[in-house]
Amino acid sequence: MIKVTIYENQCKGCGLCVRACPKAVLAISKTHLNTKGYYPVEVVDQAACIACTSCAKTCPDVAIEIEK
């Protein structure tokens, strides 16, 4: 079981994690704003995640936590 946690209100919607993820687990929300007024990233396919942690490593705001 792998769990990706997004600290939504730390996210600035930069999309680097989406770009880095090899399995399209993540996507920028099109419908929902965070408290900073950004469209945050969301986990759209948790099952596809291989816990490579690329998303967390490239996140400029340390907004991603991964459990395995």
Binding site: G13, Y38, P60, D61, I66, E67, K68
Partner: peptide
Amino acid sequence: MATIFKRTSVLTDVPFHYCPG
């Protein structure tokens, strides 16, 4: 489940002011 990636405590919990990306 073990945490394999987590914010280090050597960072304060102040959010960065840097631009997105």
